[in-house]
Write a protein that binds this DNA or RNA. Structure first.
Lengths: 135, 135
DNA sequence: TAATATGATACTACTATTGTATCATTCTGT
DNA sequence: ACAGAATGATACAATAGTAGTATCATATTA
């Protein structure tokens, strides 16, 4: 039960890395060197981040990626949603036919409360805040 | 990203159902009727709960299951641990070789804080508390 | 001893995650 | 114009975890 999958994790690291070099265009190849992750997988992730509007890209020689949004405006949950869909801690079917016992509904309520708390916390964690200790 | 998998969910429902009929021995077949879940899957789950000491079982005609521990002493996290292992919201490898960027360590810290909060809440939810509204 | 119930265990199906591989397209410098 | 360098699009493959099925052994009871 992972809260954050690997592509989300890679995306966070890539965004942080790109964000540190203000303005500079960084290519996928450079990121691979810095972050030590599989190149084709990272490329796919970068393409997604571009499509979703978090990155700008430029093709051709000297091309690569820059941030489209500053790190303090990107929260963990934004990145998670892109790669993992909406945060849903319960995925049960609570139709009567599936769940004849009222206890399930109480279960769902309680898990939903936890979900709200988790989402709240994830919203307040910006990518900027992950860099604070960085020398 | 489910917090609770289906076998955990079924186990909770089965335990609650057994707990309601105080003392009475309930067979897997009866539970299937009440709870509408696949019989072989439920059987496996009941066997696990027996091994783990949450249920007592008796074989032969008139056999079945009774609670070994009362519902107010069983928390959600107890059942989750049995079927899902320890709660770990991060499963990343944070060795230096995998994670050259210090930002990951901050990420891990923040996720760990959320994990603590989630675990705390799960501990306080007893199976008994899932039955309170039951008529 | 036959019927009934659980115990043990091996096998299968499905799905999400975690990648890989390939070709097309665009941009830059010469 | 063209070669090289970069991303864009897309299809495919490997792995692991979840969700179940199937079968036979064992114990209990009437």
């Amino acid at each position: 039960m992972k809260l954050i999958t690997r592509n989300t994790d890679y995306a966070i690291r890539a965004l942080c890395c790109i964000g540190e070099k203000k303005q500079e265009v960084i290519s996928a190849d450079q990121l691979v060197k810095f972050l030590e992750m599989p190149r084709p997988f990272l490329r796919k992730i970068l393409q997604t981040l571009n499509k979703e509007g978090l990155l700008n890209s430029s093709k051709g020689k000297g091309g690569g990626f820059t941030l489209a949004i500053s790190l303090e405006k990107i929260s963990l949950i934004d990145v998670m949603k892109i790669f993992q869909g909406p945060i849903r801690l319960t995925e049960h079917k609570f139709k009567k036919s599936d769940c004849p016992n009222i206890s399930d509904c109480l279960l769902k309520k309680k898990i939903d409360e936890i979900e709200k708390e988790v989402i709240l916390r994830l919203k307040t964690i910006t990518l900027e805040s992950l860099l604070i200790n960085k020398k």
